[in-house]
């Protein structure tokens, strides 16, 4: 009896104290041999397993790019599907190394949740979807409507703000699982489904019994810059995730793709030489292999390629997610 108690006390103490000397995330990732990445439970174009169980989407590509940068092997990722409510606790508690799950960058999340947003991989905004047969053409006509929404999202807050600002009322139906909340909408429990416009397009395309029966209203009621997130207090890891994202943008700007980057290893353009690691020590500055960015582009592709394979087939336009050089908002600081 006494022995058992002593063992229990020691175990608890060991567990609690081990969290005190937290290892750096990069070392932990290297020693376990893979990146543990928190993703969506199934949002087409962002992160969803395909028919063979392989995860696909631009958020998944962000995870794969980190693995390519760290290990030179984009397959060294394990995925943790998370609902909106679970995602931040999973990251705070160290269950995942990085969260890439269509998560909006807000000041509250960036400060009091103990997290850091590394950048933006999709500029979005919140919209409303309604059945065509309701005959609604503007969000201003939604007074009194019943609205399906997922909890723990910025969506839930923007929705309340918008109706307050416009002196309208609504009845929320708040369901955590995407599958259940969309079922509730498609079965007619709600008049309206609201989330990021990307989420509306994706769920309409992949989950609606008849996609043509649903319209997305013209109003976009918020800014939803979506991007990967890491924990506070590990600047090295923060740098790696941030510059991996930038590398994919920079590659598109430099015209480097998964197809042509091999030839460009011998390019004479100094920017490209630095990027592929032929000159300079950028990889070393990040505690990575000097070919980190080459590996990212070779195995995952540049941002435009990721967009074309994952989002374009669902009917997404580049729009503001184009490079700044093409009139969009995507802009990477210089890699030098």
């Amino acid at each position: 009896m006494k022995v058992r108690l002593a063992v229990a006390v020691c175990a608890v103490a060991a567990f609690a104290s081990s969290t005190l000397h937290a290892q750096s995330t990069l070392d932990a990732v290297k020693s376990k041999g893979y990146v543990q990445c928190g993703v969506n439970t199934g949002l087409a174009g962002f992160s969803q397993p395909d028919s063979r169980g392989a995860w696909k989407g631009i958020d998944v590509d962000a995870c794969r790019a980190i693995a390519a940068a760290v290990f030179g092997d984009a397959t060294k990722v394990r995925y943790t599907p998370l609902t909106a409510q679970q995602r931040f606790t999973a990251l705070q508690s160290g269950e995942i190394d990085v969260l890439a799950r269509n998560t909006t960058w807000t000041v509250t999340r960036d400060t009091s949740l103990g997290l850091n947003f590394v950048g933006v991989n999709y500029y979005d905004g919140q919209g409303f979807m309604v059945p065509k047969k309701l005959g609604v053409t503007s969000a201003k006509q939604l007074n009194g409507a019943t609205i399906c929404v997922q909890p723990g999202t910025t969506t839930e807050l923007n929705l309340a703000d918008y109706f307050r600002a416009n002196k309208m009322s609504f009845k929320p139906v708040v369901i955590e699982k995407l599958e259940e909340v969309t079922n509730a909408y498609f079965s007619g429990r709600c008049d309206v489904f609201t989330t990021d416009v990307s989420g509306l397009v994706s769920t309409r395309g992949s989950r609606a019994p008849k996609p043509a029966d649903h319209v997305i209203l013209p109003e976009v009621i918020s800014k939803e810059p979506l991007g990967p997130v890491v924990r506070h207090g590990d600047d090295r890891w923060y740098d790696i995730v941030k510059w991996t994202l930038f590398a994919m943008l920079e590659a598109e700007e430099l015209g480097l793709t998964s197809k042509n980057i091999e030839q460009n290893l011998t390019s004479t353009n100094p920017s490209i030489q630095r990027f592929v690691g032929a000159t300079g020590d950028i990889g070393k500055m990040m505690s990575l292999d000097n070919r980190w960015a080459y590996n990212v582009v070779k195995q995952v592709g540049n941002y435009g390629e990721s967009f074309e394979t994952n989002l374009a087939p669902l009917g997404f336009e580049r729009g503001i997610n184009n490079l700044w050089t093409n009139g969009g908002l995507m802009y990477a600081p210089p890699i030098r």
Partner: peptide, 14 residues
């Protein structure tokens, strides 16, 4: 539980 969950998620104070 549902409301406390939402609260935890919006404030981060699990």
């Amino acid at each position: 539980v549902s409301i406390a969950n939402t609260t935890m998620n919006q404030t981060g104070q699990a």
